[in-house]
Amino acid sequence: MFDLISQRLFATPPREVLYHYTTLSGLLGIVDSAELRCSDIRYMNDSTELRHTLDLLGEQVTRRIVAGVDKPALLTTFLDWLTYRVVSGPMLFCASFRGNGNLLSQWRGYSVHGKGVSVGFAPEQILDCARRQHFEVGRCVYTPSQQEKMIDEIIDAVEILDAGNDQVDEVASQNRQWVRRFQAIEGDLLRIAAVLKHPAFEEEQEWRIVSPMISDAAAAPVQFREGSSMLIPWFPLDLRDGQGQLAIEHAFLGPTGNIDLSMNSLALYLRSRGASPRRDITYCDIPYRKR
């Protein structure tokens, strides 16, 4: 049942150009390597990534226990297990895209000192790159009613996991059985959590590229970069098309105090790397405010 919920979330493909917001330094890294650095979901910019799903599950579990369920210990064990796994569980790597490449809220985050750019890729290219590397592409869910329905389905499925296992002599043995079942669905739970976002971020209308679950960093090409206060794990997503080319569909230059020079140097750089956008480069036309 968990796999069906997960599959449903990633069943609708994008139809519009998908934009990735980054800094000029980030752009250099993307174009020169033809790769995108997908961050572990726990270390992404929005610190509430997994916590939001955990909060929703906690609220629903509490309501059910208060209302009366056959096995409250099962749901309590599930929540305790999830709380632990949020920090120390397997890795799931994500990259963020948006259908709108010219959002003021995003420029505020990425155009500090006039150094923001959003790079747009054709949806079919993103889908092809994702599928070839066993990633999935899904649109984030923000509507509270949709999220509540999904959380209900998850908890229903958790209760079904224990069907037919009433006779267990020891509590410890029972808990071990439950944890083994929880571990079997962990990948699907992480994929679901990756696209459930707090309604406050609805304006972003984000799409996520989501990696397979990775349990062993030493056995996969997991790399690390320096963050503001810790090391950030990341995983490379190859952006080259079937012909081995980095094909950029369109790009926006973010607010800057040197529009003409910045537009010119950006165009020169992309052309020198054989990555000139098919639909050219557009200035965002948002007034630049030096901070």
Rank of each mutant, 00 (worst) to 15 (best):
D32C: 07
Y288M: 02
N102H: 09
G244E: 06
R85H: 07
R15M: 08
M91F: 09
W234H: 12
L268F: 14
R273P: 03
Q183E: 15
F224N: 05
G68C: 08
E206V: 04
H52V: 10
V210F: 02
R8Y: 09
E124P: 01
G254F: 00
E49I: 02
V119P: 00
Q7M: 07
S39G: 04
Q133A: 09
K71T: 11
T76C: 04
S265Q: 07
S228P: 04
L92D: 01
E59S: 15
W178S: 05
K290L: 14
L79G: 01
R98G: 15
L270T: 12
V210I: 08
C284P: 06
L237Y: 02
R240P: 06
Q183L: 07
Y283H: 15
Y43V: 01
G242W: 02
R289V: 13
Q60M: 11
S262N: 15
D32W: 04
E186L: 09
E153P: 03
S47F: 13
P287G: 05
G257Y: 03
P212Q: 13
D166G: 13
I281M: 10
L9Q: 14
I248Y: 08
R289K: 12
D152K: 13
V179L: 03
Q147W: 13
A11I: 08
E124L: 03
L4N: 08
E124W: 05
F121E: 02
L28T: 10
L268H: 14
P123V: 01
E203Q: 15
H52C: 06
E153R: 06
I155S: 04
L56E: 11
N165V: 09
Y110I: 05
V179C: 06
L161N: 08
L237E: 06
R8Q: 12
R208K: 06
L127I: 13
G244L: 04
V168I: 14
E170A: 08
S88C: 09
A220V: 02
L24C: 09
N100E: 10
C94H: 01
G274H: 08
E159D: 09
M150T: 14
N100T: 07
K115A: 12
G242F: 00
P287K: 12
I281P: 10
V66P: 00
R42W: 15
A130H: 05
V69R: 04
Y19R: 02
L196P: 03
T53G: 09
L270N: 06
D216C: 09
A67Q: 14
P236C: 03
A73M: 12
Y19V: 03
I126E: 07
G109Q: 14
L18D: 01
R181I: 00
D169L: 11
Q147I: 13
L57T: 06
D3R: 13
G244Y: 07
F224E: 10
D216N: 14
Y84K: 10
